[in-house]
Amino acid sequence: MKMAAAGSLLPLMEALSESNDLWAPIVEDGQVVFGRWKGESLPDNYRVTDNSPKELLLPQTESLMRFEGVYDQLDIKEEPIEGPKVAFGVRPCDAAALDLIAEVLGSDDYPDERFGQRKDSTTVVTLACDEAGEHCFCRAVGGSPASDRGSDIMIYPTDEGYLLRAVTGAGQDILRQCESALDPAEGGDVESAAADCEDIEMPLAEEISPDGVTEDWHRVFESPIWEQLAGRCRSCGICGYVCPTCYCFALFDDLRGNSGVRFRGWDSCQFEDYLLMAGDHNPRPTETERTRQRFMHKLHYFVSRWGEYGCVGCGRCADKCPVGIHMLAAIKELEEVV
């Protein structure tokens, strides 16, 4: 257990950046985004960044391979993966989300190699929360503001400074690198620091609970509530793209004569053409089915497959949806159904 100097994590970030590719919340034109660190201290009072750190493991778009030639003379070159990274100042919900996506993309049966390699080479340094944001509700979906799930190092803010704890071996290695920027934590009690974060006020988490939805899902599925909720949906991709636990992607080729690149990029179930099939059949033709799919997936399908909610309660959808169709609103409406 180490302690960083009170008041600022900057020396620690500087030390980390010396031999690592450091990513952290940065301010860009007034927006707090998760991006490559540029030498500044963490933004004041940020809760979650606009984009989620899942981008590091599952980039918005990436090229998978380059190919050239025809038929049996096809030359395929796999695209190398960029080097190791350190993700700093990740919030516990986002760190947990990385672990949650790994259940799907890192499963033993069908591992996604590129995701797996990136996950193994990314060290996650998580900053526990000392205050809940306007739309935070991690506790309602099984998370916690002090959770170390998906993290390699935990940082707990206290009145005297920041207490650091290595969660994994990789975390320990990284901590050793930047020992000079840290003070020994004399008398610091990491347990109580964690407990303080654990106990922060989170009004929304008390207010809503998705538990009933999972149990009574037949009734939920048939509920007319979806039509009301989805009526105002604009079929854009905001909710899926800012969500730290959404992992859908599509593959596409960029062809130039006999050569080309195969890309993959995010896709969202809220787009009209997401499930469009040959012959023009669309199993989810309107906003109603698509909205229902999004919430059913996170509150029921995911639960029955993986035993936990497919939502970490970061509140980004509530922040960003321009017409207020988000997890909080959905759960609140559904509570009246079940």
Partner: peptide
Amino acid sequence: RQFDRCLRCFACRNV
């Protein structure tokens, strides 16, 4: 810098 943040969610077009 501005466009690199863009998520291509198409909300701007849809609205």
